[in-house]
């Protein structure tokens, strides 16, 4: 109940600072890439099979949070300008064990384009 409207001055970002920061960021990226290329002469073995237990239970329900929407509905809510979200499973390794965690990512994220295409195909069936 503590809503407050602060009239804020627009934060002025110093262009010199931006340029300096970008330079350092790029340098760090490049250095990271270069060091990996040197380190990893040999390609690592790929161990990225999707674990079978992932497919148990409901996997592909789309979830429009805040709005009761049809799955695959891509419109955004004009009122809030908020894009709807898609629920995904994030696969992580804890030691050698695989684990999945749920997360919501925006509908328009390039990551979920693939899944959406697949879904569209399913709908056509």
């Amino acid at each position: 109940d503590d809503e407050v409207h602060v009239r804020q001055k627009v934060a002025v970002v110093d262009p010199v600072e931006v340029a300096d920061f970008d330079r350092e960021l790029r340098a760090l990226m490049q250095e990271s890439l270069d060091s990996r290329k040197l380190e990893m002469r040999n390609r690592p073995t790929i161990n990225m099979m999707l674990p079978m237990n992932l497919f148990e239970g409901p996997t592909k329900e789309h979830h429009g949070r805040g709005i009761e929407g049809e799955s695959g509905d891509e419109t955004t809510d004009e009122g809030t300008g908020e894009a709807k979200e898609v629920r995904v499973k994030v696969l992580v390794k804890r030691g050698n064990k695989q684990q999945t965690k749920q997360m919501y990512i925006p509908h328009d994220c390039s990551l979920v384009q693939g899944t959406k295409q697949k879904e569209a195909a399913e709908l056509e069936e």
Binding site: L54, K60, V88, G114, T115
Partner: peptide
């Protein structure tokens, strides 16, 4: 992301 499932993983750019 996986081609057919709503699964994502973190992957490094170099070399994976």
């Amino acid at each position: 992301s996986a081609k057919t499932e709503s699964v994502v993983v973190l992957l490094c750019r170099e070399p994976c």
